[in-house]
Structures are given as structure tokens and as C-alpha cells.
Design a protein around this nucleic acid. Structure first.
Lengths: 129, 129
DNA sequence: GCCGAACGTCTACGTTTGTAGACGACCCGC
DNA sequence: GCGGGTCGTCTACAAACGTAGACGTTCGGC
């Protein structure tokens, strides 16, 4: 059974993870500085979140000197996909379509991504369902 | 101003709302029966959730006899869209694309919806961003 | 007109989340 | 070698969530 999917992220945890994912890895001080500016969080708040994220298995902490270097255990995509899956589970009836339309409208997509999605839809077309 | 978006739904609340959305409206007894079968919830649990949903403004309760008839204040789509928006906010970097790809793969779409999405992507194509 | 079944409300309690202070350990510069 | 600053841990507490029992009210059937 292995460890499989870690616990889902709470909103405040997403914010921390998002920062660490962007950096690749970060020291507490970086996260603290960012969170102070972006969310007006006190250092203690960030420390607590970092610890919880390590406990939950989302971050790996490697000792460096007197402190830790935090890095994501997995890339952002799997977590996003799991969140997306649970979103889809909530889509009643035939709302998956309108929901996708909404998402596409709201997304900033590059030309390549648009092409990829089009290709995917074309492949789906024949054997829809 | 006005009342605007109600609070976000918690996981257990989504389950209740999903049922009510499908029915259009429902009496407590219907929800209780469904939840007992689907989630093994005690009647009290469902009653509490129904009350919280009414308090949060997701359900409207109209007295009918000795009980209430519950119906959604808004259709499922707006709630789903709000959930989708918060999902997109978590999408770091250029992950919106892969995320959409994942969603399209996981979704059961009809031919018409596929056509609509394709048209949308075509329109996006030129002035991709 | 009374009784039982069903309904909604109140209360409860453990867990998770958001937010944060206190404190002891430790490393680096002087 | 010492002191100051930084780090992580422990503790705290309110609010939200998940789950549920107790209870008073009330509607419908007999």
C-alpha cells in the first residue's frame, strides 16, 4: 500500500506550498518574509504551518546548520490533480462541461497548451463518453 | 454588495448539496435516507448539516406541514465555479495547462460539450496570452 | 381528542485549521 | 569564548467541521 496520497491541503497550507513550489526549496526565513508581505502573517504562524506540512508529508526538511531547508516532497501537479478530482466529484449531472468551459475561460493558457487541449478533444470526439 | 457569494462548502456539505441539487428540492427524510445509505450517517448528522446549510445561505427552507422542504438557493454551477476558481489560484507557474488536460481526461463529456470547448479554444488561439 | 412518529433545535465533543506567543537550543561574528 | 539573533518546538485558543444524542413540539391517523 505504500504511503500513497498525502492528506489534502488546507487553504493556508496551499499558500505556503505554492511559495515553496515556486522556489523549489526555501529556508524558513524566506517563507516568513514572503508570508509577512503577502498575507500579513506573524513568523510563528508560518513556523506552525511549515511544521504541519512536514508532519503531513508535503514538505521534506533537511538540516542545514541551525535550521532546515524545506522542499516539496512532490511537485505541485499531483496535488492540483487530486484537488481537481475532488472538484469533479462534486459536479452533478452534466455540469462537468460547463465547469470545464468556465475553467478554460479563466485560465491563462499558452498557444501550445491550447493546441494540446484541442488535440485531446479531437481524440475524444469520436468515442465521446 | 448585496449578499454575494455564500461561504464555501465543506466536504460533508457538498455531499448534502449534491443530493438536493439533483432532486431540485427535498424533505429532511429524503436526505436522511440517502445519507444513511450512501455515507452511513445518523439522522442527527444530516439534520445538523441541513441546518448549517440553511444558516450559511445555501439552502432555503419552506415550511410544509410539520417539516421543511429544502431547496438550493442557487444552482450547482456557481458553487462549482467558485471552487474551480480557488483551484486555479493554486495553480503555480504554467500548471494551468496540465491541470486542464487532466480535467478533460477525467471528465465524461458529451459530443456537444466537446464541440463547445473546441470552439472556445479556437477563439482563444489567435490572441493566446 | 389522543398518541405515536417525525421534525427541527439545542447541546456536545473530538479534531482540524488559523493564528500566534513563549522558550530553549544553537550557530556565527566579534 | 560569549552574546545576540535565528530556528524549531511546545503550548494555546478560538472558530469551523464531522458526528451525534436528547428533547420538546407538532402533524396526522385512529
Amino acid at each position: 500500500m505504500a504511503d500513497s496520497a498525502p492528506d489534502a491541503l488546507a487553504p493556508a497550507e496551499w499558500k505556503v506550498m505554492k511559495f515553496v513550489w515556486r522556489r523549489g526549496r526555501a529556508a524558513a526565513r524566506d517563507v516568513i518574509a514572503h508570508a509577512a508581505a503577502a498575507h500579513d502573517w506573524r513568523p510563528s504562524t508560518v513556523k506552525t504551518l511549515l511544521k504541519r506540512l512536514v508532519d503531513k508529508g508535503h514538505l521534506k526538511a533537511t538540516r542545514v546548520g541551525n535550521s532546515f531547508l524545506y522542499e516539496p516532497v512532490e511537485s505541485a501537479l499531483p496535488s492540483l490533480q487530486r484537488a481537481a478530482d475532488s472538484l469533479l466529484e462534486h459536479a452533478v449531472d452534466g455540469l462537468a462541461g460547463p465547469l470545464l468551459v468556465h475553467l478554460v475561460k479563466r485560465s491563462r493558457l499558452g498557444a501550445e497548451e491550447i493546441a494540446e487541449l484541442r488535440a485531446l478533444l479531437d481524440a475524444r470526439k469520436g468515442r465521446a463518453r
